[in-house]
Design a protein around this nucleic acid. Structure first.
Lengths: 199, 199
DNA sequence: GTCTATAATTTGATAGAC
DNA sequence: GTCTATCAAATTATAGAC
């Protein structure tokens, strides 16, 4: 133990972090407009004015949530050009992150939600969401290189992968049926995985 | 002309229909929680109490919007077993409806939005959204039969098609980049279209 | 950093006149 | 069918004490 003092308080993290994490969870299940400062405040045991101390406006909070999410996502992903890895390995690594979201966290991707709601979001949040998709597409494109396929096909397969995973989550959530996501994965592995392995 | 009386009023349709159409457009761009009775009322030139006359609660309105959308969607689709049509023809017919949404209407699919927001929707709306995805999946599954692939592969390819189109719309909207949707289509045609044509 | 208090607006919904 | 009038609740946000 690095701290001898017993901790009667359930959560010692920064208030800002707790708010970001909680807001992320709520956005991912109900959407941006379903999240309010008062609900967040109640949930962490403070008043809404305290939330405004950490995030002056809701746009600030939204932006912070997306930026935190993107950073975590890219961190879990690691470099797309790690030595000794094949394009199929990278493809599977990408799939694993989405499996974690839908299976362990039981939520859709933050940016599937915000991407759908993009037309009603404040500008800074919009921009942060666009960054997520650009980074994810880029990671896949680079990761798919070095095998039997060229740059053009890598871009197309990356777009299919990203779209199918994001859409697959939404459909599975809406139907309340995880099996439909498994079907998507099966087809995707055949369409993309096999193509990366060909030659 | 079936009616000789000139029409100085811009819109003679039923108020209920106008409200449904307007609500659909707003849900598809900003989400369910961004739509309010007052905004709708202002936009069609009545008071919010009049909206409540046609749709007592917001859940009633939401349900009506989804049901109207599903009916229109299935109508545009036609029967999945039309004579003289190949599985590829049906696949292309399905793609065309989604092209219409993203290109002509410049909106994502209603159920891409509501599917993402499913966790925060009232029960009747939830149920209507689930119906949409079940019907779409079923149509594709049936439509893919009669060619070189079996029932199991038809189900998997149907799930991939639906997920990729729904997700592709969301990604394209979020990035503000229609080209990314074109890339998805390119890969999807190779993965699904070619497979339906094989043999 | 968190609080009390409050402002200004919007929301979903209802009662009852016309 | 639409209106006026109204309600209770919730929303984002701010000022200022502790």
């Amino acid at each position: 133990m690095t701290n001898a003092t017993p901790s009667p308080v359930p959560d010692r993290r920064d208030m800002a972090r707790r708010l970001i994490d909680l807001a992320e969870r709520r956005i991912r299940t109900e959407g941006y407009n379903a999240v309010s400062f008062r609900q967040l405040a109640d949930a962490v045991g403070v008043k809404s004015a305290s939330v405004h101390y950490h995030f002056p406006t809701k746009a600030n909070l939204g932006e912070a949530v997306v930026e935190s999410y993107v950073a975590r996502f890219m961190d879990q992903l690691g470099p797309p050009d790690a030595a000794g890895e094949s394009p199929q390995d990278r493809f599977e690594r990408f799939l694993e992150i989405f499996r974690h979201a839908i299976e362990d966290e039981e939520m859709i991707c933050l940016c599937a939600m915000l991407g759908a709601e993009i037309g009603g979001l404040p500008e800074p949040v919009k921009a942060a969401v666009a960054v997520f998709f650009t980074q994810a597409q880029q990671w896949l494109e680079e990761g798919f290189q070095g095998g039997p396929i060229g740059a053009e096909e890598a871009a197309a397969l990356a777009a299919l992968t990203l779209a199918a995973l994001e859409g697959g989550m939404v459909v599975a959530a809406a139907r309340g049926d995880a099996d439909s996501y498994a079907l998507v994965l099966e087809s995707l592995r055949r369409a993309v995985g096999d193509r990366l392995a060909a030659g």
